[in-house]
């Protein structure tokens, strides 16, 4: 017979575990949250029946040790499922080094400043990446992160636009070279990705 204290500890554990489950992707929760809750509840009951609160503590240690890695792995897997042919990553990998060159030209060959400005480029990339990730997402927490990231990226974008306009007024030639430096590799990367995507579209099954 399970004591009142143990029943309380089990109920509290299940509630705390429900909070942890919120960290997993919405689609994963929709599929498995009920099963996970039920399995965890039984796990706690068995541990308490065999070893009392020490058993429950062991269950919690296992759960907490597993938690960070499983959250990251689940998000990564779900992300890969959502965007198997994502063009965003190669595009960003092209844009980042090009942006350094362009920034260097705009800022007057100050490489250190260019690398500092990379943070703003990363903010744009993060916003695009998040926008792609958010498509179809329903979690309120994810939406809040998305809105905050978009706000930060927009502020950075406006600041950079102002800076570019100032540079354009001061030295139109250098900014034109900068834009060309960005446009040519980006266009080339997009064209090659388009071709790869078109090839894969042809090979895809009829659905």
């Amino acid at each position: 017979m399970i004591s009142r204290k143990h029943r309380g500890a089990r109920a509290l554990s299940v509630v705390a575990h429900d909070v942890l489950i919120r960290a997993y992707p919405a689609s994963f929760r929709a599929e498995y949250a009920n099963e996970m809750r039920w399995a965890f509840s039984h796990l706690c009951a068995d541990a308490i029946a065999s070893r009392g609160l020490a058993g429950l503590l062991e269950v919690w240690i296992d759960t907490l040790v597993d938690f960070p890695a499983s959250v990251i792995a689940t998000h990564r897997e779900r992300w890969q499922e959502r965007a198997p042919l994502s063009w965003a990553t190669p595009l960003m990998l092209t844009v980042l080094p090009v942006a350094v060159v362009a920034r260097t030209m705009v800022d007057g060959a100050d490489v250190a400043a260019s690398f500092l400005h990379l943070s703003s480029v990363a903010a744009y990339c993060g916003a695009i990446r998040l926008w792609l990730a958010m498509r179809g997402a329903t979690s309120a927490g994810q939406r809040i992160v998305f809105v905050i990231s978009c706000a930060a990226a927009s502020a950075t974008f406006l600041r950079d636009t102002r800076m570019c306009m100032d540079a354009l007024r001061q030295s139109p030639a250098s900014i034109a070279i900068g834009f060309a430096t960005i446009a040519v590799p980006v266009a080339a990367a997009l064209a090659s990705l388009r071709a790869a995507h078109a090839y894969l579209e042809v090979r895809k099954p009829i659905t």
């Binding site: 942890l20 489950i21 997993y24 994963f28 599929e31 498995y32 099963e35 996970m36 039920w38 399995a39 965890f40 039984h42 796990l43 068995d46 296992d62 759960t63 040790v65 597993d66 938690f67 890695a69 499983s70 959250v71 792995a73 689940t74 897997e77």
Partner: peptide, 30 residues
């Protein structure tokens, strides 16, 4: 079902391998 899989893994390995519910269902999904 999931819980009996967890229990069997724990028992068959003498507790050396313990799969937490989250990892179990993530792997089951895969």
């Amino acid at each position: 079902h999931g819980y009996s899989i967890m229990r069997e893994i724990r028992e068959s390995t003498d507790g050396r391998i313990r799969v937490a519910p989250a990892t179990l269902y993530r792997l089951i999904g895969g």
